[in-house]
Design a protein around this nucleic acid. Structure first.
Lengths: 204, 204
DNA sequence: ACAGCCATGTAACTTGTTACATGATTTT
DNA sequence: AAAATCATGTAACAAGTTACATGGCTGT
C-alpha cells in the first residue's frame, strides 16, 4: 500500500500529472527505491476506480493532470494519523525463514544465520560508507535519502542483534528438542516425514 | 515469496498433503501468522506449474500428497544458502511514509512520528507481556513462537530508536529547508503545487 | 539525422489473501 | 442430531512490478 498511499498524499498537495508524480516520489524518497513509471499510471487508474482521484483533461502541453477527491483527502488524513501496523498482517520474510529453517532437520541453521549476518553486516558497512550520490548535496533530497538510509541502518543493526540472540538461544536447545526430526536418516524424497501421529501409517 | 518458499522447504523433508502443510507451517512459525488454508492449495498449484513440486495420487484416505522435484530441492538449497536481501527491492512502508510525510508541507511530521512511536511502544509492551498462548509450553512450537516474537521485539525497538533519531534530525531542519513547500497558503485542490521550475508556468 | 529524454499508456504477470462451496469424519 | 474439525478445492481480487509500444521534443 505504500506506493499507492504516497502518490495519493502527494496529490493531496495539488494536481499532478503522471510523470511528474514519479519524480516527486523519487525526490521525496531520495531515489532510494526507484519506481517504474508504468506503475504510476496503473496506480492512478486504480485510485480512480476507487474514487480517490479524478482524471483531469490534458493541458496544452498534453499533460494529464490528476486531482484528489474528498474521499482521497480523507484517506490521506487517515493514513497520516494512523500508525503503520507491523503486527499480524505483515509477514517478516527473514523471521519466517529462520523459524522454518530452525525446525527443519538436516538444515544447518547456524550456517543460515551466519550467511544472513554476513549480508546484514555488509549492508551496514555499505550504508555507512555510501554518502549520497544524488543531485544537490545539502538539498532536501539528500535529507530524504538519509532518513531512509538511517531506517535501513537501524533495521540492519536490529537484524544482527536478533541473529546473535537466536544463535545463542538455539545453541541451548538440542536439535531433537524441536521434535521435528525424522525417524530415519533424512529420507528426502518418497518417504513420509513430517506426519504427525497416525497419519504416518497411512503412507507406509 | 516467504510462504511459497516455506512450503517448498517443508516439502523437501518429504511428501505432505495440503492441510498437513498448513499445520506444519503453523507449528514452525509458532502460529504467529495464521495462514489461510486456501492459500496452501493455490501455492501448491503454482509450485506445480513452475515444476518445483509434483502432485501425487490420493491415498486411501483421500489425502493428496505432494512431493518436491529435483528443481524444487535445488530451489530450497538456494534459498537456505542465500541471505534475505532487504536492499533495493523490499520497500519499507514506514520509511517511505515518513520520508514522504516529512516533505509534505502542512503535515505535522512530529505528530506522525509520535503516533508511530506510541504504536511501536505499545507493541513492544504487548510482546513482552504476552507469554505464549499455544499448545504445550516448553515445546518446539513455543520456541518457534519466541523466535518470531523476539524478531518483532528487536524490530520494534529499532523502529523506536529510528523515530527518536529522525525526530531530532528533522527538528534541526527548518521546514523550508526541504524546498517542497507551496508558494501560497496550501491551496489543496485546483492549484498546482509540486511542480518544479518551468512546469509551473504551464498551469498558471 | 539520430540519440536520448519526456510522457502516456497497456498487457501481462507475481505473490499474497480472502470468501465461498463441498463433502467426510469426528466430537459433543 | 448438531456442531466442529478435517480436507480439498475454486474464483476472484489487491498491490507491486516489469516489458513493451508509441509519440513528441531536444540537444548534438
Amino acid at each position: 500500500m505504500s506506493v499507492r498511499q504516497s502518490l495519493l498524499a502527494i496529490l493531496d498537495q495539488g494536481p499532478c500529472y503522471g510523470y511528474q508524480l514519479r519524480s516527486e516520489f523519487d525526490r521525496r524518497t531520495g531515489s532510494t527505491w526507484p519506481l517504474n513509471v508504468g506503475q504510476i499510471y496503473n496506480t492512478l487508474e486504480r485510485l480512480e476506480r476507487d474514487g480517490l482521484v479524478e482524471r483531469g483533461d490534458a493541458d496544452e502541453k498534453g499533460h494529464v493532470y490528476w486531482r484528489i477527491t474528498d474521499a482521497g483527502s480523507a484517506e490521506v488524513a487517515s493514513w497520516l494519523t494512523s500508525p503503520v501496523v507491523r503486527s499480524g498482517a505483515t509477514r517478516d520474510e527473514l523471521a519466517i525463514k529462520l523459524a522454518v529453517a530452525a525446525t527443519l532437520p538436516g538444515v544447518d541453521v547456524a550456517a543460515v544465520i551466519q550467511t544472513q549476518r554476513t549480508a546484514s553486516l555488509q549492508r551496514m558497512r555499505s550504508l555507512e560508507s555510501t554518502p549520497y550520490a544524488g543531485a544537490e548535496p545539502g538539498g532536501p533530497e539528500e535529507l530524504a535519502w538519509s532518513l531512509v538510509a538511517d531506517s535501513m541502518t537501524f533495521a540492519a543493526e536490529a537484524e544482527v542483534r536478533w541473529l546473535d540472540h537466536i544463535e545463542k538461544r538455539l545453541a541451548l536447545h538440542p536439535r531433537h528438542a524441536l521434535g521435528l526430526e525424522l525417524a530415519t536418516e533424512r529420507p528426502k524424497r518418497g518417504r513420509p516425514s513430517l506426519v504427525k501421529g497416525d497419519a504416518q501409517a497411512a503412507i507406509l
